[in-house]
Amino acid sequence: QKEELKEKAKEAVKRGNKDKARELLKRAGISEEEAKKIIKKIE
């Protein structure tokens, strides 16, 4: 489940939808700070 949400978040970032990505990562139980780092890494 968590990995699936991370994959979806990756796709969202690639489409330029960072808010959606952050939302998905939060749903995966990832903190706001972690989510920001992950999104930065994907960009």
Rank of each mutant, 00 (worst) to 15 (best):
E23F: 04
G29T: 00
A12Y: 13
E11W: 07
L25C: 10
K14M: 14
K2V: 14
A28F: 04
K26V: 12
K37M: 13
E3L: 09
N17S: 05
K20F: 13
K26D: 08
A28Y: 05
E3V: 06
K18G: 05
L25F: 07
K14E: 06
I39G: 00
L5C: 05
K14S: 07
L24H: 02
A35R: 02
G16E: 02
N17T: 03
L5Y: 08
A35F: 05
K18M: 14
K41Y: 12
G16K: 03
I30R: 01
E11N: 06
E11K: 06
G29A: 01
E23C: 14
R15H: 10
K26G: 07
E34S: 04
E34N: 05
A35D: 00
R15V: 08
K41V: 10
K41R: 12
K36D: 15
K26L: 15
S31W: 03
A21T: 01
K6V: 15
E7S: 08
G16S: 03
K18E: 06
E23S: 08
A21R: 02
L5H: 03
E34V: 06
K26N: 06
A28D: 00
E34W: 05
K20C: 13
V13K: 02
K10P: 02
K10G: 05
K2F: 15
K20R: 10
L5R: 03
K2D: 10
G16V: 02
R27T: 05
A28C: 13
L24Q: 00
E4N: 10
K10T: 08
E4H: 10
V13D: 01
K18T: 12
I42A: 09
A35M: 08
R22M: 15
K37P: 00
K6E: 10
S31N: 07
K40G: 09
S31H: 04
K41P: 02
L5V: 05
E34F: 05
G29Y: 00
I39D: 00
A9V: 15
K6P: 02
S31F: 03
K36Q: 13
K6C: 14
E33R: 09
K20W: 15
K41Q: 14
A35S: 06
E7C: 12
K14I: 11
E32S: 07
S31L: 05
K36V: 13
K14P: 02
A9P: 01
I42S: 04
Q1L: 14
E43R: 06
E4V: 11
Q1H: 11
K41I: 12
L25E: 01
A9M: 03
R27N: 06
R15Y: 08
E4T: 10
I30A: 04
I42H: 05
E43A: 07
E32M: 07
I38H: 02
K37W: 10
I42K: 03
V13Y: 12
E11F: 04
K6G: 04
K36G: 10
G16Q: 03
I38S: 01
K36A: 15
E7D: 07
E23I: 07
I30Y: 15
R22H: 10
K2Y: 14
D19K: 12
I39W: 04
K26R: 14
L24T: 00
L5A: 10
E4F: 14
L5K: 02
V13H: 03
E32C: 06
G16A: 03
K26E: 13
R22W: 14
E11G: 04
V13N: 02
I39R: 01
V13Q: 02
A28K: 01
K18P: 11
N17G: 03
K20Q: 12
N17R: 09
R22D: 04
I39C: 03
I38K: 01
D19M: 13
I38M: 09
A9N: 02
K8I: 07
S31V: 03
A21S: 00
A12W: 13
I38L: 10
E43L: 12
A9D: 02
R15C: 13
Q1P: 09
E4P: 03
K10D: 03
K37V: 11
D19L: 11
K26M: 15
S31I: 03
K10H: 07
E11C: 13
E34D: 09
E7G: 05
V13L: 12
I39Y: 04
E7M: 11
K8Y: 07
A9I: 14
K18Y: 15
A12G: 01
D19E: 11
K8P: 01
K10A: 11
E33K: 09
A21K: 01
K14W: 11
E11A: 09
A12K: 02
R15G: 08
K26W: 06
E33Y: 08
E3P: 04
K8H: 06
G29W: 01
R15P: 00
L24W: 05
Q1N: 13
L24R: 02
K18S: 09
K36S: 14
E23W: 07
K41G: 11
K2E: 11
E7K: 11
K2L: 15
E11I: 08
A12I: 04
L24P: 00
E3M: 08
A9G: 01
E7H: 07
K14F: 11
K40R: 12
S31Y: 03
R15N: 13
K37L: 13
K10Q: 06
D19T: 10
L25S: 00
K6R: 10
L25D: 00
K8M: 15
E3Y: 08
I38D: 00
E3I: 07
A9T: 03
I39Q: 01
G16P: 01
E11Y: 05
E11S: 06
A21C: 10
D19Y: 09
E33T: 07
G16Y: 04
E33G: 06
K26Y: 09
R15M: 13
K8N: 05
A9R: 00
L24Y: 09
K14C: 13
S31D: 09
K18N: 10
K10N: 04
R15I: 08
K36W: 14
I39A: 01
E4R: 12
G16H: 04
K10S: 06
I39H: 00
A21Y: 03
E34A: 07
A21M: 03
G16N: 04
K41E: 15
K10R: 14
K37Y: 10
E4K: 11
A28S: 04
L24S: 00
A9Q: 01
V13G: 02
K36Y: 13
K8V: 04
Q1T: 14
E23Y: 05
K40D: 15
R15D: 10
K20P: 00
E23K: 06
L24I: 06
E3G: 07
E23L: 09
L5Q: 03
V13A: 07
E33Q: 08
I42W: 15
A9Y: 04
A12S: 04
K18F: 15
K40C: 13
D19G: 08
G29M: 02
K10W: 09
A9C: 04
G29D: 02
K8Q: 14
I38F: 15
L5G: 01
K6F: 15
I30D: 00
D19Q: 11
R22G: 04
E33P: 05
A21W: 06
E34Q: 06
I42M: 12
E4Y: 14
A28R: 02
K41W: 14
E34K: 05
I42N: 03
E23A: 08
A12T: 03
G29S: 02
E23P: 00
K40T: 11
E11L: 10
A12P: 03
A35H: 01
E3A: 09
N17M: 12
E34P: 00
E4S: 11
L25Y: 04
G29H: 01
L5M: 07
E34I: 06
D19F: 10
L25H: 00
N17A: 08
N17H: 11
R22N: 07
E34R: 05
K18Q: 08
K20Y: 14
Q1K: 11
A21H: 01
K20I: 11
E23Q: 08
E33H: 07
E4G: 08
A21G: 01
K36N: 15
K6A: 09
I39V: 04
E32R: 05
Q1C: 14
L25V: 00
I38P: 00
E11P: 02
A12M: 13
Q1G: 11
E43V: 08
G16F: 04
I38C: 06
E7P: 02
A35Q: 04
L5N: 03
A28H: 03
N17E: 14
A12D: 02
E32P: 07
E4L: 13
E43W: 11
E33L: 07
K6Y: 15
E32T: 06
S31M: 05
A12C: 11
E23R: 09
E32Q: 06
N17V: 03
K37R: 13
E7I: 09
K37A: 13
I30S: 02
E33I: 07
E32K: 06
S31C: 04
I38W: 13
L25K: 01
I30V: 10
I42C: 05
S31R: 04
D19A: 12
L24A: 01
G29I: 00
K20E: 15
A35Y: 04
E32I: 07
I38R: 01
R27M: 11
E23V: 05
I42T: 05
V13T: 03
K14R: 14
K26Q: 10
K8C: 14
E4M: 12
D19C: 13
N17Y: 11
Q1S: 14
G29E: 02
A35E: 01
E7R: 13
A9H: 01
K18A: 09
